[in-house]
Amino acid sequence: MSKDTMAVRVDADLRKRLDKLAEAFGQTRSSIINDALRQYADHQEWQVNLIADRSRSIAEGRATLIDHEDVLATFEQRFADKHS
């Protein structure tokens, strides 16, 4: 996989933390940052796709919607059951 160069500014504390992690894992700071950014992008893409899927479900009438009051009542009951 080809790599592009990006300039990113980080504060001194974060740089020190990244350097410590790189040393602990026997990796370069760049590889630690790449791993972190990859995980972040994966998670964000998952969320965006999930939200889009749920929006489509609602628009197409495939979603089961629950009133806010019903959700609160369910949680209140579950909480009460655990503390009885």
Rank of each mutant, 00 (worst) to 15 (best):
F75I: 14
I58C: 00
H43Y: 12
V48N: 05
F25I: 04
Q39P: 00
K16S: 12
R56M: 02
Y40L: 06
K16N: 09
D42T: 04
D67R: 14
R9T: 09
N49H: 07
A59E: 06
W46D: 12
T5L: 15
S84G: 10
A80V: 07
R17V: 04
D42Y: 10
L14S: 05
D53E: 14
I51E: 14
A36L: 09
H83L: 15
T28M: 03
D53R: 12
T5I: 14
T74R: 14
M1V: 15
F75D: 13
A7V: 14
R54M: 06
D11G: 09
I51T: 14
G61M: 05
H43R: 10
L72E: 14
A80I: 06
V71G: 02
I33H: 02
A22E: 00
R29K: 14
L72T: 12
I66P: 07
D13I: 13
A63L: 07
M1D: 06
R54L: 06
A24W: 04
R29L: 00
A22G: 02
L50P: 01
D11C: 09
A12C: 03
D4N: 13
E60G: 04
S2W: 04
A7H: 15
D4Y: 06
F25C: 08
A80M: 11
R56A: 03
N49M: 07
D4T: 11
H83C: 11
L50I: 05
D4E: 15
A36C: 05
R78E: 12
A41H: 11
N49S: 08
I33G: 01
A41G: 12
A63E: 11
L18D: 02
L18S: 03
R78C: 04
D11R: 03
A41T: 13
S57E: 11
D81R: 14
L50D: 11
S55Q: 15
D13S: 07
G61Y: 00
A73K: 06
E60N: 12
R9F: 08
K20S: 11
R56D: 09
L37W: 08
V48F: 05
R38E: 12
V10W: 01
N34W: 08
V8G: 08
D67T: 05
A80Y: 13
T28R: 08
D81L: 04
S84C: 05
S84M: 13
K20Y: 02
F75T: 07
A52T: 05
A41S: 14
A59P: 01
L37S: 08
L21H: 06
F25K: 14
E23F: 05
E45I: 15
D81H: 13
L21I: 13
L18N: 00
D53Y: 04
A59Y: 01
V8P: 05
T74I: 02
R54W: 00
I51S: 08
L14P: 03
S2V: 01
M6R: 15
R54D: 07
Q39I: 05
V48P: 01
D11A: 03
R62D: 05
L50K: 12
K82Y: 15
R62F: 03
L18W: 00
D67P: 13
W46S: 11
L14T: 09
I32W: 00
D11K: 09
D42Q: 11
R56S: 01
T64M: 13
Q27D: 11
F25T: 15
A22I: 01
W46T: 14
Q44G: 00
